[in-house]
Nucleic acid binder design. Structure first.
Lengths: 333, 333
DNA sequence: CTGAAAGCGCTAACAT
DNA sequence: ATGTTAGCGCTTTCAG
């Protein structure tokens, strides 16, 4: 029942040509007479020949697959990026091996080694803490690696991002402009440099420019879950804050609902501005005012850059910084 | 600069043994003297040898990667499934090639052929319309294929699901029990058999059992976007419906908000029950009452089944039907 | 317990 | 325009 797989050799024999010729027509090499080409094509169809990509990969040293390391596919922010990546990947005839890392350094490292062992032609990495070990693996890698929606303080890898410092700063300034003096900073873990060295930095800069003092009691760091935001609402309510900048939409949704359920009226009693403009921001009531960033495009562009790198082309700009915006909805006045 | 890749041959030479022996220690074959094993391991570490998975795949005819066809990673329902799949895949040392299909028959087919060409050891398929061409490819496939969260009317493939007919029926019956006589059925495209032959069927059965007449004017079929739900709200409001069963959470969230913004008070004036219990259901205000289904587990179990199949083991049960539930939140009384 | 050797199915010079 | 011939880096009999 398991009929033998038909190989390039079979079609060569059947078509009365050499393997090389078959290989040529399969790969669209123009150096083949029209007549032979047709004959070969006919045999291919007849035998239902399907080239073995693994063999091809071994011989050509190209697998036409790229690795994608993602914190969590279930996270709206990253899944949007992943979609952008996959769309342009498939446009260029690449497949993606997707691996969840949970932003765990050890998993990221192990997964990366795994991908490299599988001879991926390149990888796009998403994750916000790049330790020395990982960095070493990046350097060691034969395949190009680009970062998407992920900051690298040392800026050694090609990457595509928005300016997180400025974006956060703008968001906080908006709150300042609305008259707030006590603004909470709510984010994920401060071990992640995107939170500590980018968002928090932008937050501080905005305060400084407004002549407001930085107060650690207004910094709430947790994780990225809705429930965490909901739970932290009580603490925020009990603080002296009258508004909050939030680094993640699920967190913001949780905070908003927690506050609302606790009798706080947003935006009348409290204003909120969040960061990613995912679908969630339109679902909550009131709808969340948010920084906007082009997640899909970030993924798409990162992948496009990767195709160039894999093709040994020069990058015009190794670090692309995309524009962000702020969309005012109903959690700010 | 591009230092030559170190191959199994290099370590064999360096360790003074044959390639076969190196291969044995790399693969944990017990037939190696402890001393030789240690020597080889030392050389491997020394040379930083990394086995080439592509070569391995060609020689062994196993790639330890499985294909995953998903309608859209960005869809919460499917991304949860994907996470379950990836987690058990990595537990069994498989990687997944993830491909978005947008439920387009032609893309699904093309992607499947592609995956098969890459010699994946198996595939898990998510998608709700399986046409004859695709089915033929399934049959033709050398690699086992299991369906996850996707119905197959002909039930030819191993699959894991919940009982969509019963679940929908229960949901609608709940609405009936709450006194409703005019219940709207809101879903994605009726071309998808999950909507037409499962959900709608369950809906009709519930009506029939309640002695209620089926009324086509109460059937609203659109797609799976929040905006579509929001837009359709007006039509629903203008219909004679006093409650709705909705086949998708984004759609339900849209409907809910559309209705609310239009002055309809849920659940007082109108009740809603949705289907997937994704994160969204807790974010909306009022929170959505929903059918619950174990998305993550469905993915995990599907992948677990696949590992058995790839291992030539028998499946106890080719069609696993997981339990569902209904969680009452605030869009029903 | 270890080695020799034959592939796995294809690409890529190099000839012709 | 087409064929010959080496590999690609590893696994896997088969011997010993």
């Amino acid at each position: 029942m398991d009929k033998e797989n038909v190989t390039i050799y079979d079609v060569a024999r059947e078509a009365g040509v050499s393997m090389a010729t078959v290989s040529r027509v399969v790969n669209g090499n123009s150096n083949v007479k029209q007549a032979t080409k047709e004959k070969v094509l006919a045999v291919i169809k007849d035998l239902d020949y399907r080239p073995n990509a693994v063999a091809r990969g071994l011989a050509s040293k190209k697998t036409t697959t790229v690795g994608v390391i993602i914190p969590d596919v279930t996270d709206e922010f990253f899944s949007e990026l992943a979609r952008g990546i996959d769309d342009v990947a498939s446009m260029y005839h690449y497949n993606i091996i997707l691996a969840n890392s949970d932003e765990s350094g050890s998993k990221e490292l192990q997964v990366l080694e795994n991908l490299l062992a599988k001879q991926v032609d390149g990888v796009v990495f998403m994750g916000n803490v790049i330790d020395e070990e990982l960095r070493a693996e990046f350097r060691h890698s034969h395949a190009p690696i680009v970062l998407a929606g992920s900051v690298d303080e040392q800026n050694q890898q090609p990457s595509v991002n928005i300016d997180y410092i400025e974006a956060t700063k703008d968001a906080v300034k908006k709150l300042v402009a609305n008259g707030h003096k006590q603004i909470a900073f709510v984010s994920g873990n401060l071990d992640q440099s995107i939170n500590k060295n980018y968002r928090l930095k932008g937050y501080k800069e905005a305060l400084a420019e407004a002549g407001l003092e930085y107060n650690e009691a207004l910094v709430f760091a947790t994780d990225y879950f809705y429930g965490s935001g909901y739970r932290i609402a009580a603490d925020v309510k009990n603080s002296i804050a009258t508004a909050a900048y939030v680094g993640d939409d699920e967190l913001a949704a949780g905070l908003l609902n927690g506050l609302t359920d606790d009798g706080v009226s947003v935006p009348n009693d409290f204003e909120i501005i969040t960061s990613n403009n995912t679908k969630l921001t339109q679902v909550t009531r009131p709808q969340l005012t948010s920084i906007t960033q082009p997640m899909y495009d970030m993924g798409a562009i990162a992948m496009r850059m990767l195709t160039k790198l894999m093709n040994k082309e020069e990058l015009d700009e190794p670090t692309v910084v995309l524009p962000y915006g702020i969309i005012e909805r109903q959690t700010t006045k």
